[in-house]
Design a protein around this nucleic acid. Sequence first.
DNA 1: CTGAAAGCGCTTACAG
DNA 2: CTGAAAGCGCTTACAG
Lengths: 353, 353
Amino acid sequence: MGQYSLKEIAKELGVSRGTLDRVIHNRGGIGSETTDRVQTYLQSIGYKPNRVGRSLARMKEMLLYVSFHDTKNEFFKEIQAGLKAAENEIADFGFKVQFEDVSKSSASQIKCIREAMRNGMSGLALSPYEPDAAFEELVDEIVKSGVPVVTFNNDVVNCGRMAYVGINYYTSGRVAGEVLAKSVKSGSVAILRRSSSYFQNQQRITGFTEVIDSFEHIQVAGSFGGSADYDSAYKNTKRIIDTVPDLHGLLMLNNESDIITATCDAVSDSGLKPFDIVTFDLPSGCQREISNGRITATVCQDPFSQGYYCVKILFKYLLDECRPTKSLYSTRLDVIYKENLDSYNKELYRSFF
Amino acid sequence: MGQYSLKEIAKELGVSRGTLDRVIHNRGGIGSETTDRVQTYLQSIGYKPNRVGRSLARMKEMLLYVSFHDTKNEFFKEIQAGLKAAENEIADFGFKVQFEDVSKSSASQIKCIREAMRNGMSGLALSPYEPDAAFEELVDEIVKSGVPVVTFNNDVVNCGRMAYVGINYYTSGRVAGEVLAKSVKSGSVAILRRSSSYFQNQQRITGFTEVIDSFEHIQVAGSFGGSADYDSAYKNTKRIIDTVPDLHGLLMLNNESDIITATCDAVSDSGLKPFDIVTFDLPSGCQREISNGRITATVCQDPFSQGYYCVKILFKYLLDECRPTKSLYSTRLDVIYKENLDSYNKELYRSFF
DNA sequence: CTGAAAGCGCTTACAG
DNA sequence: CTGAAAGCGCTTACAG
């Protein structure tokens, strides 16, 4: 199968397979001379351990613990699909993926992670509620205990996490800017903020505004406070339309179903045409309005890959003892219109793998 | 690890593991009573074979043969990356992926495939030069001999191939139409055909035209013959610009580097503004002009997944004995602009997996 | 029609 | 510091 097996190598070198194993994994307790001889030989033949043999022999079950906040969010379903796909792939190697619905606060999330540590986890995939100092400390503590940590969707920067899988929010704002600038013939565009304002949203607004400013035919009329329910969102949008002259486009940072419907309704009712709305991500509300033609396009961040690759990175590290070559793994920024929407819904992994 | 092992089940049922193996794989030669008893029990406990054990025990190396024409094409590099990624994943299970650079004719491609058959292949991934009757017959013959066939990028419809992985070319034309319609404020757009006209291109043109026709602010001025080199492409484009009144957009079906440069040069030199060009796929010429801002966007067909998933489907069938649930697997139709170009170049699999 | 044994490539105790 | 044996979950001849 694979090139050389330990059995063959052991025979060739006149040592036991146990010795080879100890050298390969730096388990210590082997004379420096033997160690050298073995290492040199392994190098020279380019020995690659067979993962199948390795995982069959290793009796220990590996638990990867995934901590994400706000798991009822539709967005998480996609991440979960990625996690599941990865788990499927690695289950035969003795790996399990477990995630917990963590309520909305840094403190409760940290509590759950500590609990998981106590129960014994082999790796942690983390999307922090808020990437503050408390998380930095926690991650460093976990890493120090020998457990690898990968962040996804939302990074924790100043700590020993092995890698981050997710997008650059500033860039996603830029993409949205380009899409809207391409669609709006002339006039002004407005930004609808979220009610709560995360750092991520601020980055998106910055990127978006920079790009719009680089075009001459349109300008940003300003950014407007978010709304929490249908009625206030409808009124809010109406008011913006009445206030801002020559308005032909909208960037929506809030993509909750109600808010999207309200905003689209208000725009429709105003009779303003042409009018382009660009959103982020792809919850069902977005999909519906893209199909309707009331939303022009959405900028999606490939959540599937965020779930999939954070698990795969941990897996590769734990099974192959191989660290990722980069610490930042950017997922795709997909621009989804009416005509290519379907091609995203039909993505391969959902149906078979 | 996995729930139940054959060892445990054999003990429980009072039969040997060999018998279990024979029942599980329908190898025959087991009494109907025993067969029933075993099957019922396996069902009741939801037995799932462990792939790791299976592939370690199976001594036979599995060879997946990939047949693609025009493998020097840049597009193939991406497909190849997908093939390699899949091979990496399945190598430990005893699978090899081999592909051959087949020269440009149906006959020579078929000859190579027959050669591979004789040498013994476990599965075939095929992108036919031209999906004609000769390929239909060949595929049926191969399938009849017990070797599964998956088509990718270019389908062979009337035959026993297990699945097709690739895009619907008509839909990709529609996506290009939507993108161009969104970008061009008003006036007409033209189609630049390829010199040789494949069925795929015709489908793209149909989809594109349908979408453009559905918008009122623009119309298709016509489709113009392809050019083979820089000079003729430059002149050709110049001529179109001079001939077609109010031209503000171009759909390019030919994405060879020279042709792209020539066309963009001609448009730049004409001073026409605003002007939008939309292309297909993402060869380096396209990337460069998207970065330049001379090409607005390209519609890409996710070639990586085409390579990756056609191998994975064969693998899953051969190892898990599990047929795909669908026969058509559509890959994504990505719309790539300047701002999200980078996010496609940085895709995860290239750097680590 | 069915069983017992050997083996795939590794790791894990145990022994010395 | 090193070796020999057992075992992970399967499949493959071989034997009867």
